[in-house]
């Protein structure tokens, strides 16, 4: 029900209140989705210097097999001087999936998210100079991903594994993989309040931030990220820190070590 209302509101703003969302810089949306202007104004803050650009690449399956776990790989390594990358869905009760601040990492990230219906997916890349470059792809879906209760609530042990981290570094290829166990409840399923990780970052032992993420409700249950660094530059280990909206701290260490 909440989702239906949210969608109705979203659609109204997207079409009915057209003038309200007339952007400063009018773009020709390659996806032709009807929601682009709204997100350009509301989510990106109506920047003047913005364009669609093929160097922002989104790779994903054409159809979401599991609407609760849709993989997406965003690659903006063709863009220099990247400050942050916003990932969002044109059509979803909560469009904004995450914002990635690559810091010392390459502007490239693998993630999984919950999809609610077939939608254009976007990655909007902002440089330190305030320029915006946007890439898109379309993912078809059966739907229901955002409004279904998390799997974790069906089991009894979710509280025990809350904040449990799996992952490691691959120094030679510059890869880091991190999975944090968390229900990531969207608040859209009946009777289950919002319960999500809001911040997650990788830092060196001396506290230098290597990469930073802001997470929103559509990130999948047990968020899983691939982060990419210059090959050969990763230290032996990186700290994982973060917190959820209930004040739970997330702490762990990624090493280059053996499995298990």
């Amino acid at each position: 029900m909440i989702r239906v209302l949210a969608m109705a509101v979203g659609l109204c703003l997207g079409s009915g209140a057209w003038a309200l969302d007339d952007p400063v810089t009018r773009l020709d949306d390659p996806m032709g989705s009807g929601m682009w202007d709204y997100h350009q104004v509301r989510l990106l803050g109506d920047p003047a210097d913005i364009r669609f650009d093929d160097r922002v690449i989104l790779r994903a399956p054409a159809t979401a097999e599991d609407s609760l776990n849709v993989p997406l790989l965003v690659d903006a390594t063709g863009i220099d001087n990247v400050r942050r990358i916003l990932v969002f869905a044109d059509y979803g009760p909560i469009p904004h999936v995450l914002t990635y601040y690559p810091e010392q990492a390459q502007p490239r990230i693998g993630l999984r998210f919950k999809i609610d219906q077939g939608t254009a997916m976007r990655a909007a890349v902002e440089t330190h100079a305030g320029q915006w470059f946007v890439g898109s792809t379309y993912i078809d879906a059966a739907g229901g991903g955002c409004t279904a209760p998390a799997h974790a609530y069906a089991s009894d042990d979710w509280e025990e594994k809350l904040g449990e981290i799996h992952g490691r570094l691959w120094a030679a290829s510059g890869r880091a993989r991190v999975i944090v166990d968390h229900p990531m409840d969207t608040g859209l399923a009946d009777g289950i309040p919002v319960f999500i990780i809001e911040e997650l970052q990788l830092e060196t032992e001396d506290g230098t931030v290597m990469a930073r993420l802001e997470l929103f409700e559509p990130v999948n249950e047990d968020p899983a990220f691939s982060l990419y660094f210059e090959p050969g530059t990763l230290p032996a280990s990186l700290r994982v820190t973060g917190r959820d909206n209930n004040g739970n701290r997330i702490r762990g260490v990624l090493g280059g070590g053996e499995t298990h």
Binding site: P61, E65, D66, N69, P71, R112, G163, E164, I165, H166, G167, R168, R177, V178, I179, D222, A224, V240, R251, G252, V253, L254, G255, G257, E258, T259, H260
Partner: peptide
């Protein structure tokens, strides 16, 4: 095969990657 990756990989990965805390 692509569907199978979606079905099976999340759990396999969780088993294969070392604990970080």
């Amino acid at each position: 095969f692509q569907r199978s990756v979606a079905h099976l990989f999340p759990e396999i990965e969780r088993m294969e990657l070392p604990r970080g805390n």
